[in-house]
Design a protein around this nucleic acid. Structure first.
Lengths: 349, 349
DNA sequence: CTGTTAGCGCATTCAA
DNA sequence: TTGAATGCGCTAACAG
């Protein structure tokens, strides 16, 4: 049952009819002052203005647009943990640019957790707030998918695989395995994982990739949150429990930075005593000299933009999912390999 | 009888009337399939669906919302060079959070330059796309202000002073002077400025602040863009022209990072041979050990959110502008002061 | 300068 | 299950 859902029990929002009545004028006049037309006497103008102030009038945007006959530009909503890591800013940028070029509106929603995601999606669906959806690093359950289908809302996933849903993603398992192998090849004997909350699918995969090469009993400690401080605590605990650890695989760059800080505080030299690998290659990691696994962030965004554009323009089109390549970037937190192999290689995944 | 959209010249967008006619059903039925109601025969449902596909039908969002009577949530547009520097992500975050808590919609627009800004503002004003505006690090001319006033669109400025417009800002001149003075006190004899494009008001002010303490003939070189590469080029040129330079004031952190890179490439040790100051204290600068001037990014965002909320809820309210304090953060790119003074001080501005 | 009127495109009764 | 009719709140002719 819908209706005036927003104003349950409370006073209905005033309309121009209310304003007109209160100011003793016609609705057209109200509309005129609302739009700043010049042909209005200052007196009546003031009267209308007062009426609006008194009643706390706020124009209804939907009605204005409908009446004015403005363009019905497609609106794309993108849900992502925008403020959690620079990674997301990097994928959001190409999305924003390409969508703007395609004359579509992009609305960025920062989603910090599953609960926030569901609240937001409920609202978006209920209010038909967008024509299409980009889900970044997150999935949706079957009931939600059904809801989207029923409402004819096309959607795609970025950095997340969902069966039957067009998506761009990487092989996190392989990437993490690559990182671990690199550490081993660089001479690390005892390698530990600085993991993250398993609510993040990527973290889970990377943990698995790590275990696949470091062995099932390799030390693993999951930071409580994907923050530098949590990483510091994890590393401290890890090294306290096993001082022989000489290699750290971190499930993302942010954690790696925290690890580096803690290592410095502990007086462990990097990479001589302990080597560190990150994951993402987010901005500034080169300046920090962090060895890491580079994610194709710009391509993520580009792909998402192109896919959603096609999806909106021809709803029946089939969009094949894509798996992008991960790149190993070796910098100063790992020892150079003895061999003559270059400093960058790609997964053959 | 309802008719065609008022689009002049181009083909009018099909409406449910067109769909209904083509599918040989009533508009109510079209509406039903559109909203996924269950009480529709699969046959008619398919017919409608086909008609929609054939005509490339796209529902009009404004009409849906108007008819459905959904909430008329205030929409706040924020214009900022979101993707130029991490600085902006840091101010956007509190804005997003507080506006969401206030049940307002935030639409983030990335604006790269003046032209993009004006295009966007034209559209926003023309389409009445928002109830209020947050302008970040940018101003607007008198004609634009008049336009806003006429349309009753409240707006505020962040990181920018505009006479008569509520704003939060800092004293960039004083901040830069502080940075320069710090370098001098730390022993730098010959200090140069790595400036940025003067299209950015903040850069201009910081340049002025630098000159006010370094003297009017101190070396100044403006990077072509506020990027690390441009900074590298500038620093190279600066040191080539005057190898005696032992202090670099950069107008923002990003440039400082570039400067640091170039210094490393040049084999100049920091801070022993050359000391460097940044500006912003954007994320990760602590990890890099950059000495810098910290901007109150979170407070910028908070202030903006609170101000715009008040402005929307009571349009006649007076919002006083605020000047926030800048903090000097001394880290590893400057030499510790001989005295016992702490590592952080505030401007007394 | 101002009021009256007629839609904008859609969701939703209410009959059929 | 479906169609005809009504109105959402506002803008824009068109009269006065």
């Amino acid at each position: 049952m819908r209706g005036r859902a927003a104003t349950i029990g409370s006073v209905p929002e005033p309309t121009i009819y209310d304003i007109a009545r209160r100011a003793g004028v016609g609705i057209a006049t109200v509309s005129r002052v609302l739009n700043g037309h010049q042909r209005v006497t200052e007196a009546t103008r003031a009267a209308v203005q007062r009426a609006m102030d008194d009643l706390g009038y706020r124009p209804n945007r939907a009605a204005r647009r409908l009446a004015a006959g403005g363009p019905n530009r497609p609106r794309i909503a993108a849900l992502l943990p925008l403020f959690s890591t620079d990674f997301y800013a990097s994928v959001a940028r190409p999305i924003a640019h390409e969508l703007m070029a395609a004359d579509m509106d992009l609305v960025l929603y920062d989603v910090a957790n599953r609960e926030a995601k569901n609240r937001l999606l409920d609202r978006i669906v209920d209010e038909r707030a967008c024509e299409a959806l980009i889900l970044c690093s997150m999935g949706v359950g079957p009931e939600r998918q059904q809801q989207f289908a029923q409402r004819h809302i096309p959607y795609i996933c970025v950095d997340y695989q969902l069966p039957g849903v067009p998506s761009v993603h990487v092989d996190n398992v392989a990437g993490s395995a690559l990182a671990t192998r690199h550490l081993r090849e660089a001479g690390a004997k005892r390698i530990a994982l600085v993991g993250g909350p398993l609510t993040a699918h990527a973290f889970r995969d990377r943990e698995q990739g790590f275990l696949s090469v470091a062995g099932p009993v390799a030390p693993v400690l999951r930071a409580a949150t994907a923050t530098r401080d949590a990483a510091r605590a994890a590393v401290r605990e890890l090294l306290h429990a096993d001082p022989a650890i000489d290699g750290l695989v971190c499930v993302n760059d942010q954690l790696a930075v925290g690890a580096l800080e803690e290592l410095a505080a502990l007086g462990r030299r990097v990479p001589d005593e302990v080597q560190v690998m990150g994951f993402d290659d987010q901005p500034l990691m080169d300046a920090l000299g962090l060895s890491t696994i580079r994610q194709p962030m710009v391509m993520f965004g580009s792909w998402a933009a192109q896919a959603i554009i096609r999806r909106v323009n021809q709803p029946t089109a089939d969009i094949p999912s894509a798996e992008l390549a991960l790149t190993l970037v070796s910098r100063r937190t790992t020892r150079p390999l003895g061999k003559s192999s270059g400093s960058r290689r790609k997964t053959s995944a």
